[in-house]
Design a binder for these strands. Structure first.
Lengths: 347, 347
DNA sequence: AACGCCTCCGTGCCCGGGCACGAAAAATTT
DNA sequence: AAATTTTTCGTGCCCGGGCACGGAGGCGTT
């Protein structure tokens, strides 16, 4: 009973033909206002939903969603994120949707611009952007909008009107939480923030917001704490070691370290050779980070499930592309997980 | 290019008609051996795969997945789990799959058996079981298998051959983690486990495994710690208060409390009236638990995302039912999240 | 009045496969 | 050899929607 309504039912009930109903359904124009309204009324009344199979069968073509990500090596944050693409691929195969990834150099706006034009040439049906450059991304987004290609943002939410959805964690709060984990149960006198040299150049960076959240927590709960910074070069382990050595020579009493990017693992070798700190808190479940967590060198990690973010973003786009479904929320702040020594294994 | 072969291509190449090809494809008989072989040869040669959309469209029926869950009230653990059903429902609507939930009394094997027969009468295409009774579930599972109805398990993994997939967290490890969070950074002399009276009767219970993991951690890291138990009645808040009162009269130095079920919130009112403990650790993100966490009464919660478990289980079944797709993994241990005061908001 | 041009709409075929029905071919029976 | 049964097969319509094409009707122009 209660058979699902079809396009023919609507045609019959409105006294129009299915061609017209179809035009209404796809906003393809060439329909008078009167007919349009009549069709819409009946659609609402019947709660009509198109039959996915019939639709897919009739259309038959393949849709493409392109991911615009920073280039990444093995074991990096963006590789984690790419796991979400794989997961989405298998879920979307039955919908004849394929995904492709285009990469850019996260330290070069030029390379980003170049990647953007490659994406456009592919005539994608949807784009997932992990943005790094505010201005360039805005330009690109405008271009996508003008071609009415929907796009979603992951990781960093730039000021950008017109995106279909954003998936990421609340950066400020994650910094706040980070400070709580670093200091909970003790009263800190000193703490160290380790930063990546090149990151200073970037125009946009969630680590900035994290730092702000961190600072605010400390101000509220450990106002007497002195917070120092140290810059390291990710491509030069020896120099990193030296820098840390020099730092601890000067400030031997520091026992608490944080990093707001995903690369806490860079300082792990040093810490394991010179065990002196009490708590080390970092971000993201890179395998190198997890290993350090299991060994106890790192006390806690805040994980943001990049693969989930990407998966969801792709799903949302697919929903939009295939079913013209608008997502309920545009800004989806996902949960931050706290990883401790004994809950890392199932990652 | 490399268009996918259709049933018509095969018909053409074999010189037979698509009716015959169809009979071969479905082993529906009424085909001579010669024709059968010819068709099979061409199928293999072309690597023919039927178009699922066309097939589903032509067949057109609705599939049903039934969830067999304990009955639950507002704000309970199984209500959280049911959120996964809602999520799955909207995702599966386009695949013409509906879900229905059948509930049983989690303290009565009889009611479980009854619920099982109701499920069977519904002629489901797949079943998700949240099992409580080892033996009865095995009987039911055997029945499902004999009718070749696939089923998935969530929450508790019983010893049960033939299930399509299991989704849950590793219970033993979660207890281990729980102990770590309760004691990390201090050396405990005493701790209290609060338990639910009726739970003693149940034949199977992840809380048993959790307790084991907890005990082992304590044995390894706090061997001198005395661990006491207290049973409370969930339906009688006044008695709970009294029990706690009596307990602390007798053991005034206990400062650490755990509960291995989802109902840590039951002791929160008492704790807030008599603030005396240092750390309180519980399970699951029930809203009452989260509220207590935010107020600081509860120190940490281990959350297992029941809604995700259920969602995934349903998805896996749907994949099997619609696309005959076998899942990669049968045992899916999901991540346990640690919830602290400052990462609860996005739940 | 004849013509052209829009706007709006209906018709009909297609997508790939499922399946009922009936006909042709082969095998048996008389 | 004719009649009957059984086996094997082809035809044609259906599922629900997408979409190209062309036609009807309204409007304005010459």
């Amino acid at each position: 009973m209660a058979e699902k309504a079809t396009i023919n039912d609507i045609a019959r009930l409105t006294g129009l033909s299915k061609g017209t109903v179809d035009r209404v359904l796809h906003n393809r124009g060439e329909v008078s206002k009167k007919s349009y309204d009549k069709v819409m009324d009946v659609i609402r009344e019947l709660g009509y939903e198109p039959n996915l199979y019939a639709s897919l069968l009739a259309r038959g073509e393949q849709r493409t969603i392109v991911l615009l990500f920073p280039a990444h090596e093995k074991g990096s944050y963006w590789e984690l994120a790419s796991a979400g693409e794989v997961k989405a691929q298998s879920a979307l195969k039955p919908l004849s949707i394929v995904t492709r990834q285009i990469n850019y150099n996260q330290y070069s706006a030029d390379s980003f611009r170049e990647a953007c034009s490659i994406v456009l040439e592919m005539h994608p049906d949807g784009v997932v952007i992990a943005p790094m450059f505010q201005y360039e991304t805005q330009v690109f987004a405008k271009e996508l909008t003008s071609r009415s290609i929907p796009y979603a943002l992951v990781d960093t939410k730039l000021d950008m009107p017109g995106y279909l959805a954003f998936y990421g964690i609340p950066a400020y709060k994650s910094g706040y939480l980070c400070a709580y984990m670093l200091s909970e149960g003790e009263s800190l006198k000193e703490a160290l923030i380790v930063r990546i040299m090149r990151d200073k150049d970037r125009q946009s960076d969630p680590t900035v917001m994290r730092r702000a959240g961190f600072m605010d927590y400390m101000l509220e709960h450990n106002p007497g704490c002195t917070i120092r910074s140290l810059f390291i070069d990710p491509s030069d382990p020896a120099a990193t070691d030296d820098a840390l050595d020099a730092f601890f020579q000067e400030f031997p009493h520091v026992r608490h370290i944080v990093m707001f990017n995903s690369r806490i693992h860079l300082i792990v070798p040093y810490l394991e050779r010179h065990p002196r700190v009490r708590r080390v808190v970092g971000f993201d479940n890179l395998s190198a980070n997890l290993a350090a967590l299991r060994r106890g060198t790192v006390s806690a990690l805040i994980a943001q499930h990049p693969e989930e973010q990407v998966f969801q973003a792709i799903q949302t786009l697919a929903d939009k592309i295939v079913f013209q479904r608008q997502p309920d929320l545009t800004d989806n702040y996902m949960h931050m997980d706290v990883l401790l020594r004994y809950n890392t294994e199932d990652y």
